[in-house]
Design a protein around this nucleic acid. Structure first.
Lengths: 251, 251
DNA sequence: TATCTTTACTGGTCATACCAGTTAATAAAA
DNA sequence: TTTTATTAACTGGTATGACCAGTAAAGATA
């Protein structure tokens, strides 16, 4: 069995990340001491320290002997979990989509050029799974829809035969999903937008398997651009993310 | 004081990473047990476990309750330290350069479009620092040259005003430098290639500050492509990386 | 030969003690 | 009253030992 069982260290790390994401802990601010955190969270100090090491490894916190642990001042790389702190800065989401459009376009183009028959079989399979789900008319969770959507894009991307491209895009996609989950959920539940997305997927699919590189690129770029436009619309309606009003000695 | 004091956890992580990089430990292989590692490395089991958590956080190892810890089968994201495991698979370097060409081209294009006067002042300053170093004729370390080279590319990239692009490129650049350091050093010490690179930098610089987006893009892409071509040449000459012949019970 | 049980591994968590660095408070000296 | 030095109380870091819980391998039995 793979490593999906959570340890206390994982719980600790997630709790502290949540405090940071909610703005309860801010960059530069000192965390409560290990002894305080241990008592408050109800874990031993050694298990807690293991959780803090996870955060250290990810450069989310810095610890200094004798002084304390501090929330790092972040300008992390993509794929760093804390990039979605920038979810409060909507511009960054659009920056991310801009880069993603570039990479998706290129990956679609290369896929149309380099894809093997096996690649195309897989792409077709993924595409048909999406179509089937869409046509079932069932009310589905975003997670399932996103899973199929992602599997389709991943199959296209892997057909580019450039693993660096694959992984860079994965990082950006994970980042996007984690940052604007609620907005994407909103988007997928709107019939008009959903049909548009389905048409875009169809165009992308056909362009790739028909080996039309420039068309594949255009389809991919337009797809990302329409997602961007839709998110801008939704954002204009949505409330800002509710921020926890927890105080440390009250949580 | 900042967090530069090494803990035993850091030492443990580095030792195990070294074993992986040297090929002594291979993906999928089980690590020695915690108790064995603890005894062999001479640290307590709790400190060792903290080190293993660092590796877990970085997804370099996977631990499973009751089974053991295993070297992860790696296809990590850019900026993950273990990406340079792929330095033994030359194809990945070229994949990386392919993605980098794409991003550098786009960033140059956007810089030519979006750059402010302040951006251009900085770009000019960085460019002239490179020119000055080159013309000094001094025998310089790669590190210093790479630093100026990087500062120039960074200034161009930041003029794109897309921080996601900036950080994605930084990750790939760091990865490239750490993976093929010796080859880049070799490259920079070859006069013909160095002059070619200097001319490419000149073209890129002028295209950006003269606000010629498509020319800037082309200059950036050609620059990366020539680096790629040069590395291929050098690689054909170089020896393969010497691999430690350590056995675990002998180290 | 297959299955079940037991043993011996593995990692996970905890409590306790003490070391070592830093900070703040207090006392003493200028 | 201010400055300096000392002490106490914080902080993180490491170690030891115990025990829990999951997994794998070995041995016994059917």
């Amino acid at each position: 069995m793979t490593e999906d069982v959570r340890q206390i260290a994982d719980v600790v790390a997630e709790r502290i990340e949540t405090l940071i994401l909610d703005g309860v802990l801010k960059p530069g601010q000192r965390l409560p001491s290990e002894r305080q955190l241990s008592e408050k969270l109800g874990f031993s100090r050694s298990a807690l320290r293991e959780g803090l090491q996870l955060l250290r490894a990810r450069r989310i916190i810095l610890t200094e002997h004798g002084r304390g642990s501090f929330v790092a001042k972040l300008m992390p790389e993509p794929a760093t979990p804390l990039m979605h702190l920038f979810s409060e800065h909507p511009r960054t989401i659009y920056d991310l989509l801009e880069v993603r459009a570039l990479l998706e376009g290129e990956s679609a183009r290369l896929a149309a050029m380099r894809g093997t028959d096996a690649d195309f079989i897989l792409i077709k399979r993924r595409y048909e799974a999406m179509v089937e789900l869409t046509q079932s008319g069932k009310e589905i969770e975003l997670r399932e829809h996103a899973k199929l959507d992602h599997a389709f894009h991943l199959a296209v991307c892997e057909a580019s035969h450039n693993p660096v491209l694959v992984h860079t895009l994965q990082s950006l996609t994970d980042l996007l999903i984690s940052s604007v989950f609620a907005s994407l959920n909103n988007l997928y539940h709107r019939p008009v937008q959903r049909r548009l997305i389905d048409r875009q997927h169809a165009r992308l699919y056909h362009a790739v398997v028909d080996r039309l590189p420039e068309q594949a690129k255009r389809a991919a770029v337009e797809h990302i651009h329409s997602i961007r436009d839709n998110l801008m619309e939704i954002e204009a309606e949505e409330q800002r993310i509710h921020r926890a009003s927890l105080r440390l000695n009250g949580w």
